[in-house]
């Protein structure tokens, strides 16, 4: 009887990865029982596998972000239809015949005159409306401080407006900390996302939240308070994933904003704390929001 081929390092890997036939596996396991140093190698690789899985398994349990839902089918829709049916080709509607065109021209000139007078009336109305809008959006000048002209073009700007609007208020939130379930329901309904990360680890107590005007739609806005009664806001709105800078510009002399994207949303943490404290709080919030649901092991 020929002895079985000697066990080589590749066989040890194959054992760990389930690539051996039953018979070969017995040979290798037999070898391991006689060579503890190889058994230690195998054990080490199994521990590596476990460490890798522990580090990344939570990602697989997350709900994929909105940008990835139906990503495959979404791309199929535009291109697929004409090839699939093959029967009907919807071309552009052809132009009218000549005689019809004459009639159209006559109608056109009449329409044009009517249109011009309507347009004039509309323009005047629009100018009035624009003037009103401008008058209302210029923020009231706080005593002593310069008035920043806030042209809301970024999520940080919107977060800034929300912060300035709500944070100084004695009753800054619609749903306080005793009504987080209702807050979550409102946010899911209006914003498409809800979160209320626990930031007590960095000294921030959740006061509650509300729905606030965002850049392109409703945004969520949570307010936290430090021991010194400084308030920090967490703003979030649905957004395209994008490499946004994590360390943020100071919005003005007194506020720092940290922006990040994740789970199909843009988040902005904004408040009067120092840059380091804000950064740490933002990382904590980001970790909480993207972490697996409570009850499962958290690994950070």
């Amino acid at each position: 009887m020929t002895p079985p081929p000697s066990v080589q390092e590749a066989d040890l890997h194959a054992l760990v990865d389930g690539e051996l036939s039953a018979e070969r596996r017995r040979d290798v396991e037999d070898h391991l029982s006689r060579h503890p140093e190889d058994a230690a190698l195998v054990e080490g690789w199994r521990r590596q596998n476990a460490a890798l899985r522990a580090a990344f398994e939570p990602v697989a349990r997350e709900t994929p972000p909105l940008s990835l839902r139906n990503a495959a089918v979404r791309n199929a829709a535009p291109g697929a239809a004409p090839i699939e049916t093959g029967a009907i080709h919807w071309g552009r509607p052809s132009g009218p015949s000549r005689s019809v065109r004459r009639l159209d021209e006559a109608r056109e000139s009449r329409r044009k005159r009517a249109f011009l007078s309507t347009a004039a009336a509309l323009l005047v109305g629009a100018a009035l409306a624009a003037a009103t809008v401008l008058a209302f959006t210029r923020p009231p000048t706080p005593s002593g401080a310069a008035t920043p002209v806030i042209s809301a073009q970024s999520y940080v700007d919107r977060a800034d407006i929300s912060y300035r609007t709500y944070a100084p208020d004695a009753r800054p939130v619609d749903f306080d900390a005793d009504h987080l379930a209702e807050l979550a329901a409102a946010q899911w309904r209006r914003v498409g996302f809800a979160c209320a990360p626990d930031l007590s680890g960095v000294g921030l107590r959740l006061l509650g939240g509300r729905v606030a005007p965002g850049l392109k739609g409703p945004a969520g806005f949570l307010l936290y308070e430090t021991q010194d009664s400084a308030r920090v806001g967490l703003y979030f709105e649905r957004a395209e994933p994008e490499k946004a800078a994590r360390v943020a510009p100071r919005v003005d002399q007194s506020l720092t904003a940290v922006e990040w994207r994740g789970a199909g949303m843009a988040f902005v943490l904004i408040g009067p704390l120092g840059a380091d404290a804000m950064q740490e709080s933002a990382e904590r919030a980001a970790g909480e929001i993207l972490a697996p649901p409570p009850g499962e092991a958290k690994r950070r």
């Binding site: 990602v59 940008s67 990835l68 495959a72 994933p241 490499k243 994207r261 994740g262 789970a263 993207l290």
Partner: peptide, 13 residues
């Protein structure tokens, strides 16, 4: 997650 999700989206496409 942003960079990783972008890769996933491109791969799915």
């Amino acid at each position: 997650s942003a960079a990783a999700d972008e890769l996933v989206q491109a791969a799915i496409e």
